[in-house]
Computed example of a mutant assay.
Amino acid sequence: MRDSEFETGPGPIAGDLLGWYDVHARDLPWRVSPAARAAGVRPDPYRVWLSEVMLQQTTVAAVRDYFHRFTTLWPDVNALAAAEDGAVMGEWAGLGYYARARNLLKCARFVADELDGRFPEHHDALLELPGVGPYTAAAISAIAFDRPETVMDGNVERVMARLHDIHTPLPAAKPELKAQAAALTPGTRPGDYAQAVMDLGATICTPKSPACGICPLRSPCRARAAGTAPELPKKTPKKPKPTRRGIVYLAQRDDGAVLLERRPDKGLLGGMLGWPGSDWSEAPEEKPPFAADWVTLPAEVRHTFTHFHLILTIKCAPLPEGVLPELGQVIPRAMFRPGDLPTVMRKAYDLWRDGTA
């Protein structure tokens, strides 16, 4: 239950926050400014959807350039739906969480083929789209269609925890935080309001050293009054991440052609190009793509995924003419773009290049 002093509609808290947002809204390439929105400019649901998928567990700074490239190459959902899988996966390389890119294509094709290129407006209908979960559905419905949905990301959770001085640790606190956020969501300008709360968390109510002195919600903020803001939201300690190992095999022909493989669609780095390699486990088994005197580089790749740390051993050998590898495809030098590799595979390439230069 919410506290009675907190308003349900466009009351003092929502009004103060919207007033602050009108002046301090971040300039983002996928956003319609509050002034433009007031003048009647409506957000493009395609750009809202694309940005929200890209921003999942990724920073605004990292997403900007990717968003510009995607919207230049594929300016609408029909263009993206018609794109080749490899081209999209290549442009996504380095952004991480590659299942998002696969779902991006599935969703674009569903919208183009089944919905005549139009994104649905309502939260429940948006949930039917491939790869669209509760957060993304709420964000599209609120931001693109100005519906009063409760948009919950880490920034909003932090603002709510501090505003109400909630000490229940995450993730157990999520239902309570969402209830408080829902109680404050106004029926007036809900899309701007959703972005205002996220902007507040990203720029003022930050994880460390929140700028409480200039916060538009400093008066009603209970954690500021109690002096507990810096320690909120509390989180349940995470279990230590395990470490896995693997082997990658880098082979290059005299003319510069390299041997790559397309990883299976399911699993980590699904659908991405990478170096042939072993499984990733505590004791990976050798799995060279062809018989050769493989040389082990002294440097190892170290990379962290969401649930584990990875250490990759790099083995190299010349790629003979006419070799028939057990897996993989020979990519001519002119067609090989290291930037199309996912980050962990590009790290291996960089170490190999530096070690053979």
Results as ranks from 00 to 15, higher is better:
residue 118 R to E: 11
residue 178 K to P: 01
residue 357 A to E: 01
residue 190 P to S: 07
residue 294 W to P: 14
residue 73 L to F: 03
residue 23 V to N: 10
residue 288 P to G: 06
residue 11 G to P: 07
residue 165 D to I: 09
residue 127 L to G: 03
residue 28 L to Y: 08
residue 257 A to F: 05
residue 33 S to K: 10
residue 335 M to F: 07
residue 122 H to D: 03
residue 78 N to M: 08
residue 289 P to Q: 12
residue 31 R to F: 14
residue 51 S to T: 14
residue 219 S to F: 09
residue 145 F to I: 02
residue 219 S to R: 11
residue 144 A to K: 13
residue 129 L to A: 10
residue 145 F to A: 02
residue 307 H to N: 12
residue 305 F to Y: 10
residue 293 D to F: 07
residue 95 L to M: 15
residue 35 A to G: 13
residue 253 R to T: 06
residue 326 E to G: 15
residue 232 L to C: 04
residue 354 D to P: 00
residue 327 L to T: 14
residue 196 A to I: 14
residue 312 L to K: 02
residue 195 Q to G: 12
residue 133 G to V: 08
residue 289 P to I: 07
residue 220 P to G: 05
residue 259 L to S: 04
residue 43 P to V: 10
residue 75 P to S: 08
residue 243 T to M: 07
residue 69 R to F: 04
residue 87 A to D: 15
residue 230 P to E: 02
residue 168 T to C: 03
residue 311 I to K: 03
residue 103 N to I: 12
residue 320 P to D: 12
residue 319 L to W: 12
residue 109 R to I: 02
residue 39 A to H: 15
residue 140 I to T: 07
residue 239 K to P: 08
residue 241 K to D: 09
residue 94 G to P: 15
residue 165 D to L: 11
residue 162 R to N: 09
residue 265 D to P: 02
residue 160 M to D: 04
residue 141 S to A: 13
residue 249 Y to T: 06
residue 347 K to Q: 04
residue 349 Y to C: 00
